[in-house]
Design a protein around this nucleic acid. Structure first.
Lengths: 198, 198, 198, 198
DNA sequence: CATGAATGAGTGTTCATTCAT
DNA sequence: AATGAATGAACACTCATTCAT
């Protein structure tokens, strides 16, 4: 891994744990094992580090959601088993993905300082997932598994508890917290299915 | 208003917007209109400012919740009208209260740096409201308005969307954002009632 | 004891232990139990505290030495017993007197900053004792106990080891150190007598 | 001379004149001609300056004393001429060496604040020289030049007056003071020899 | 590619002092 | 006599950044 990449990894790790402002160039360089002045060969300034990371985030999150979209397109019938797998997959493969977790951790802090980051956070944390779930339930209403005309409402009732349970366990740095979260999410999904049996 | 109080107000405002670490003593004193050295006449150090604010928060939040408890004790029958008023009251009188809003803003940022603050945030933002709503639905199941044995689930489905809508509108500094939030919350509450008509 | 006196006592204690510069007005007032601003009713500024203490010191040291002079005037014959008692009395009653110890402790530090204090230190720590001992040995040479014409030399050989042993035990805050010092001084005095038996 | 060395020299000079605590980073940087922040490139913090100086002191003092030991080992007979040269050499080459003078000046002030420095001062100012002189007189008693069995006493009578005269002339910044000191020391040494002619 | 060396701006904090009350 | 409130200057130290090598 070349130095630039090492720097980015270190920066992401530290930004996500302690926030952009609380992390110093010294901290990052200390982890990488280079001098502070050397960092400026790879990045124009501290802000450029953040920007590079934000670019990666958008790309990674985009990849994940288009993957979801493709998956949804192939669905024709939904068994409950699949429904559960999709829901926990969202948590395990996205919300708990170390890099995504780090990105949101960073954004959650930094959105206070920067409207652009606030917009980014809202888009990828609230709006896009909500839109996806809405489309999802629209699709599922065609199979008869969920009632039609209530897609937005269903998406909210589906998603909000997941994020509630997710945020409540912050910071998710212990395996116990993660297990607790997954268990609570699974229960929520099962209850959700029970409430909406056709 | 005496200087100590002015300092606390300024500190709360800035901490909530940018976080404890990102705010300097200079920033606070600049807003109050005193020199930095003068602040140290009123508070031992920067941390003492935070502690004083945390004390206030716990007190204020405690007052609000015990008020809610008293209110609940007096309920005998629940008309939908009252249910709506209680829900929007929680948002308007608590979540949107400028001081509470500021406190949670501050905690939301600082919990990343301080486990004690993380615990405080979880307690007052997630756990206590959830417990209260659980008790509420237990009480309402006695009146027959809501099914028995599902209090926890009901509380989650009731509360999570409210916080989802609330956080999505951050920072709530414009009247439009607040109106948008209240409208969305009201819609959620009405839907909630419809779904659970006895 | 009135407040002014309390302040002086506290100041002397702290100056002697930690030096004038290292002691803050806060420290002194904290010990006395008054506010910093109150101190300025009693003393013009911090330096005035030092000056007041220096005045006392000169007075006290002067009293002690004129006492010694009177004592010497009454001596007609010197038994070794008396010689020993005078020597240990100089250490116990003067060098180890808590106030004198404090004064010299303070002067030893502060003389670096202030030529006047350097002069004061030299006068009372080196020159006056040396002069006194010189007069003493001049007197004793009349009794035949010590040889004539060597008063200065005798005074130096008598005094220097005492101060050597004294300073070597700094800081003299434990009873053990004081006992160790007195024992070493007594041995020096006995040897001194033996070397100069007539 | 590189910047780090310049900083150390300036620090030693100022510490010795005014004591570690009374000297600010600003003072040192002002003398060197760099900004305060630059100092931190060379030294971790203010204490690190002191530690570096203490290390040098121990090394230099150690070098000097082992030199003395070697010199003593080669002595077979002692002529008075040599005795005088050794004594004045101790004053001129050690006590008056600018760096040693500065080190002791610093230690003399700071030992009040720091037990570790107090121990260092006692060791190199009192104990080691006393031990060396004791060994010296033990060696000389074999040549018959000094009586046996009184080495400790002789060392004290030899050394204490030197230190007495030395300290009395503080601060030794004028050539006159140094000359006065050397003259007084020479007189002491000559008297010492006279008193102990075999 | 990397570093040694430097810097200006800023950090929280302590200090002796003033002055109206 | 004493204090509440304030202040300018100083303190040790950190920061992101620059630039010649």
């Amino acid at each position: 891994m070349d130095t630039g990449e090492q720097i980015l990894q270190a920066a992401l790790g530290q930004f996500s744990r302690r926030g952009y402002h609380a992390v110093s160039i010294r901290d990052i360089c200390g982890e990488v094992g280079i001098r502070e002045s050397s960092l400026y060969y790879h990045f124009k300034n501290k802000r450029a580090l953040l920007d590079a990371l934000l670019g990666r985030f958008a790309e990674k999150a985009g990849r994940f959601t288009s993957l979801l979209d493709e998956g949804m397109a192939q669905l024709t019938e939904l068994e409950d088993e699949v429904f559960l797998r999709v829901g926990t997959g969202y948590v395990q493969g996205y919300l708990l993905d170390p890099e995504i977790l780090a990105f949101f951790g960073m954004l959650r802090i930094e959105r206070e300082h920067d409207p652009a980051l606030a917009a980014l956070y809202r888009e990828w944390y609230f709006d896009r997932p909500l839109q996806f779930q809405t489309r999802m339930f629209a699709r599922l209403s065609q199979t008869g598994r969920f009632p039609a005309g209530q897609e937005q409402r269903l998406a909210l009732l589906y998603l909000a508890p997941i994020l509630f349970l997710y945020e409540r366990e912050f910071p998710l740095d212990s395996a116990e917290a993660r297990a607790r979260l997954l268990e609570a999410v699974r229960r929520h999904l099962e209850d959700f299915l029970k409430e909406h049996h056709p």
